[in-house]
Simulated scan of single mutants.
Amino acid sequence: MAAALRTNACAQEANPRHSIAYLNPDRIAAHLLQQWQLTVDADLPRRDAAARDRAFRSFDSAVESACSFYLGAVARASSRAGSAAASDSALI
């Protein structure tokens, strides 16, 4: 949690509009669906069941909770992608 808060604070310090308050809930939902290996067209009962399996009350509460961690997850993913590209370019 502390790392997520630091990531969010750094993003907001760089640009006040880079705050979790401005995150699109649909984007967070899509991220969770991907992470949980559910299809985009999964219905609400299936989404809620997946959320309850992960100790959330509902899918909506999972989306709300995930906002705090989303920026860090995206930063880590883009960092891994960048280092993979850098390693690949070293082979050329």
Rank of each mutant, 00 (worst) to 15 (best):
M1Y: 12
A3Y: 02
L5G: 06
R6S: 12
R6C: 13
T7M: 14
A9M: 14
C10K: 12
C10S: 04
E13Q: 13
E13P: 04
E13K: 14
S19Q: 09
L23H: 11
L23G: 06
I28P: 00
A29M: 04
A29V: 00
H31T: 09
L33D: 01
L33T: 00
Q35T: 09
W36V: 02
L38H: 11
T39I: 09
V40H: 05
D41N: 07
A42D: 03
A42N: 11
D43H: 09
L44A: 12
L44V: 11
P45K: 13
R46T: 10
R47D: 01
R47A: 08
R47M: 13
R47W: 04
R52A: 01
R54F: 01
R57M: 10
F59R: 10
D60G: 15
S61W: 06
A62K: 07
V63Q: 01
V63F: 06
C67H: 10
C67N: 00
C67D: 00
S68N: 04
S68F: 05
G72K: 06
G72W: 05
V74K: 04
A75S: 04
R76G: 07
A77L: 05
S78G: 01
S78E: 15
S79R: 13
A81I: 00
A81T: 12
A81G: 02
A85Y: 05
D88A: 14
A90D: 10
I92A: 15
